[in-house]
């Protein structure tokens, strides 16, 4: 569960999303708005990452890795429904 790459990616994106959203809320300067052409990109990117993080963690909960048996390790069944999760 902890050493499931989906958990790891989800947690990192979650941390990043959180930091970016907080940064966007406490530090939204006019100079930054000039850079981004008026967008509060930290906020939107942060929200995007939080959504992606939630999707990964939900995937872990909905399709947990099958328990490995002691004698003959079975392959972990974590195939996605075809294709990449995010291009």
């Amino acid at each position: 569960m902890l050493f499931d790459i989906r958990t790891i990616v989800g947690s990192l994106l979650g941390c990043y999303g959180l930091i970016l959203v907080v940064t966007a809320l406490v530090h939204d300067t006019a100079a930054d708005r000039v850079r981004t052409g008026g967008w509060n990109i930290n906020l939107w990117a942060g929200i995007g990452m939080l959504v992606a993080a939630a999707a990964f963690l939900l995937w872990v909960v909905l399709r947990p890795v099958r328990q490995l048996t002691e004698a003959e390790p079975e392959p972990a069944d974590t195939e996605p429904p075809a294709g990449p999760s995010e291009p």
Binding site: Y16, I19, L20, T23, A24, H27, T29, D32, R35, T36, G37, I41, N42, A45, G46
Partner: peptide, 11 residues
Amino acid sequence: KEVLPNGLLGV
């Protein structure tokens, strides 16, 4: 350098 504000710059 031109378009990313602090925060996304770190990413």
